[in-house]
Design a protein around this nucleic acid. Structure first.
Lengths: 350, 350
DNA sequence: TGTTAGCACTCAAGGAAAGCGAGTGCTAAA
DNA sequence: TTTAGCACTCGCTTTCCTTGAGTGCTAACA
């Protein structure tokens, strides 16, 4: 059976109406929305075909049609109008970006919140490293005879530090030497190689030193480790409950539990495309089988990539969400391009 | 009218049954649970009195009685048996505390999660400073001619650091001098005084220095500021939906929205008591008027105090929650007492 | 005076029956 | 290929009824 132009048009009407109202659409209503005069009976024939081809479904015999996941997919791939944002919409986004966004740590969460208010669906946000992070430099600063500060500079320009307590007094003059040791042996290598290297040193340095080195290396390891499962932030998760498909408390709970207490398992893009859409059963997690996710990523500088995901019912307003989200992500990328390092004005990039 | 011993006993039975089943309890059922033989008619008389005094309510004329907020309050204050934890329960808590809890930053969130699994109600967690945090020490480390690292040690022993870009090259030798300047003028003072001090220096140092000093002081100010509205973590928020009183999706959404997207407004203790209970309408926030909150705090060292809150329906199991939570909080305090600074081993431990 | 048995009354909850109406599939004619 | 017509399906809503748990009140009892 062939997917004629008219069938596509009908599908588009059904999808968009369902996105709008969450109600099945009948042949008569479709006939009225079609250009030219076509009787509802004709539409019914077409609907039967579309159903047979798997693009439409019927909740029950005497109800209208609703799109299937396959139907949504076709809509997203072919039928959806990728309208650019209006001036006002762009202005709104640009406004929300003005000021704000300083501390790299908070950028990701804040971006998620902004996206949330932009699309009116729950969102989540995270950061991702394109390449593995390593330690670039160590620095040990004396505090008193009972403690010192370990400063660790990472390859993505983040700098982390922690106060370390010492059990046995170490003369302060030893710290620079130990820094040197760390900088020559424990930089630019992945976390998993650190322990091996450390063992190699165990009989070359005095035990007191070794203990401290161990502690600093362990701290660095934690920092690198920590990065793999970076924090995920959600915004407006409870909004999911205002959609009629989640009026059922058990469904709502399932999804809320996933978004709030299992954030880490929310999907991440599997392709390099600037935007990816997962429709209903295309999702891996069971909790998302009845939801759709739109994901976009942006460059955050320092070889890092930010991720924003939008979660909604399968009948989510793909066209609007996709348009706003991609513009937003582009704006963020543009913005971070300008100020590669926080507070650094533009000039040549390293 | 007097609150006789028998009335109290009846109230206790009603509260505990309602906590257990979420169903109103009738006179006959109460009569059966009372020691000695008393007819349901007598109970009915007592119930009428208790209702008049405001301790009990009736959902509708032909239903049994349920406790009012006032009834719960009396129960919590006088009637509840403050049973200590059993050996097994204590062991379970101790087990969950073993290992874990290193990085001061993550302690709070982790503690909240642990509490969650302990009480089976949603929890939230935050940290609080007993006294204002100030900067204890600054350190500026050279990186290259385009940037340096600012390390800021805070009075609560946290150490924060960030990479700073410089616009105009500053000879590296200037950094120690600037550190000194910072350490003499910008330590141990509250954030709001910093700007004034900085202005005072504006004509005493060369403009390039001033710019950098400004940036470091600004960074420090952010750190201190940041502290006032510390992050709040929630665990198991979606669990609230499994309670019958929140089967209603709108109620559930109201509370979820509050717990997930308005965490910052969750209540904090108003007294110094080790545990505080807020019952239903005693809560300030509208969203919590139909819920109860049990809060406990623990010492985290460094003049900081951790807070754990448990959120549930008004009929939450106060006795169990209070017992577990207070034991847990005490255990945490004990634990942090032992290892004041992270990573300091206790003597004699493997 | 407090307690109890008895009784009429109330009211939410659950189920069956009936009517409504949106929407369908099929047939036969244009 | 399109259309009009028509019988049929089936979820929803409303109405009505029944059931049963629980009450308040009264009058008798210890």
């Amino acid at each position: 059976m062939e997917l004629t132009e008219r069938k596509k048009q009908i599908l588009k009407i059904v999808v968009e109406s369902y996105i709008d109202t969450a109600e099945p659409l009948g042949s008569k209503a479709i006939a009225e929305k079609m250009p030219g005069k076509i009787s509802s009976a004709t539409i019914r024939n077409e609907l039967a075909d579309l159903g047979e081809m798997g693009y439409l479904e019927q909740p029950h015999t005497s109800a209208g049609r609703i799109p299937s996941a396959k139907g949504y997919r076709l809509y997203v791939n072919e039928l959806m109008e990728r309208r650019p944002l209006s001036e006002e919409e762009q202005a709104a986004i640009n406004d929300s970006l003005r000021g704000e966004l300083r501390q790299t740590e908070q950028v990701v969460a804040r971006a998620g919140q902004m996206a949330q208010s932009l699309v009116n669906y729950p969102t989540y946000a995270a950061a991702d490293h394109r390449s593995a992070v390593t330690v670039k430099r160590y620095e040990l600063l004396p505090v008193d005879e009972a403690s010192f500060i370990a400063v660790v500079m990472l390859s993505d320009s983040r700098v982390k530090s922690q106060l370390m307590a010492v059990d046995l007094p170490v003369e302060p003059s030893a710290l620079p030497a130990m820094s040197h040791l760390l900088n020559t042996h424990f930089t630019a290598i992945p976390a998993r190689e650190m322990n091996g290297k450390l063992m190699g040193l165990s009989d070359q340095v005095v035990p007191e030193w070794f203990l401290l080195l161990n502690r600093v290396v362990e701290y660095a390891g934690e920092l690198l480790q920590d990065d793999s499962h970076t924090q995920v932030f959600t915004s407006g998760a409870s909004r999911i409950m205002s959609f009629p498909e989640f009026r059922d408390i058990d469904k709502a709970q399932g999804l809320m539990h996933f978004m709030v207490d299992n954030k880490e398992k929310l999907p991440v893009p599997t392709t390099d495309a600037p935007m990816q859409i997962l429709i209903g059963p295309e999702n891996v997690s069971d909790a998302l089988k009845e939801s759709s996710v739109v994901m976009a990523s942006y460059d955050i500088g320092d070889n890092m990539r930010g991720l924003i995901g939008v979660v909604g019912p399968t009948r989510m307003d793909y066209a609007t969400v996709a348009a706003r989200l991609s513009y937003f992500a582009e704006s963020l990328t543009r913005m971070f391009g300008k100020r590669e390092l926080p507070a650094k004005e533009e000039e040549g990039n390293p």
